[in-house]
């Protein structure tokens, strides 16, 4: 089963008949939006335990308090390999997962430890949260950026709205959709440079299926709710750093952090970034349309 991400084809297989791949969020990502892509062979198998011998811990994290299925994750390293481990506190199917990415062989070997007594494990190829952490690692590997943002496309112009959670990304995207724009996604975007220009792509989401979309990245808005609409162009390093603050970023060494800074500064040098206080009504659409006119 193939799942296409920006610049990537992931070919999923299972080595255990008990694992059933059933795509949900990734089901419509069965074709590439770009001409060029790199292929990874991804295989899942079941095991009673995980063996992470020889790997050293690079970075850890956990689900937000109150998550429906709490978990913790760790990224490990061994030479050129990266491993993602997820330990679930209370998942109905899985206790633990270890996915080893070999960038030289272009393979990802996933070992799944099921809960006792289960005959079958039914998972989306990019099941949560393994799929999300995997996307972060793969995006970095090919010098792309993942960002908490919504994006819309209107008459060939792609606009990105970024903010911390709960401050209006979906609201802003909804207003544009009502005014006739195409929604790229309202939560998370994958930014990738194609032929020298930055584009935004949606990614498979855990709780709904969406057609893969892409749009040029023409304008970036750092949004916040405000009693009045106020849109101000930001410049220089201040613009770049305020944009970077909403990136999805897990960097565990100097080289990685440097590469991320380079791409953020590249985006900020090519694409106008605006501070955008807005009232959630359609007037903000007119105000923003007027910027490029």
């Amino acid at each position: 089963m193939d799942v296409f991400l920006p610049g990537l084809r992931l070919n999923f297989k299972t080595f255990s008949s008990e694992i059933k791949l059933s795509s949900f969020g990734s089901s419509l990502y069965n074709h590439s939006l770009t001409e060029d892509y790199k292929s990874f062979e991804v295989s899942y198998s079941l095991s009673e335990s995980i063996n992470s011998t020889g790997f050293s811990r690079a970075l850890s994290g956990e689900s937000f308090p109150g998550a429906e299925i709490p978990y913790s994750w760790t990224i490990f390293r061994r030479d050129k390999e990266i491993a993602i481990q997820v330990i679930f506190d209370d998942d109905p199917q899985l206790k633990e997962v270890l996915g080893v990415i070999d960038f030289t062989k272009e393979t990802i070997l996933g070992t799944l430890v099921p809960r006792k007594g289960l005959e079958n494990i039914i998972i989306d190829p990019l099941f949560q949260p393994f799929g999300s952490v995997l996307m972060v690692v793969l995006a970095h590997f090919q010098d792309d950026v993942l960002v908490h943002a919504s994006g819309v496309l209107e008459n060939g112009t792609g606009r990105l709205f970024t903010a911390v959670s709960g401050t209006g990304k979906s609201t802003m995207a909804g207003i544009w959709k009502n005014e006739g724009a195409t929604l790229i996604n309202d939560d998370r975007l994958w930014l990738r440079k194609v032929d020298g220009c930055w584009f935004m792509f949606n990614t498979p989401m855990p709780y709904y299926a969406q057609e893969p979309q892409m749009a040029p990245l023409n304008e970036i808005f750092l949004i916040r709710q405000s009693p009045e609409n106020e849109v101000t162009k930001l410049t220089g390093i201040n613009a770049a750093m305020r944009f970077m603050a909403n990136g999805i970023q897990h960097f565990y060494d100097k080289e990685m952090t440097g590469r991320h800074l380079d791409r953020i500064l590249d985006i900020a040098s090519q694409i106008p970034i605006y501070d955008c206080g807005f009232r959630p009504t359609k007037e903000i659409v007119e105000e923003i349309r007027g910027l490029s006119g």
Binding site: N238, A240, M241, M244, Q249, F251, D253, T257
Partner: peptide, 27 residues
């Protein structure tokens, strides 16, 4: 620190145990 220049300005990202601390970026 990871340091980069943009125009005449500079940005510095501190590293704690090699992990980038994106909440304490200096410009």
């Amino acid at each position: 620190f990871v340091t980069r220049q943009m125009g005449s300005e500079m940005v510095m990202v501190p590293l704690t145990d090699k992990v980038a601390d994106m909440t304490s970026v200096l410009t």
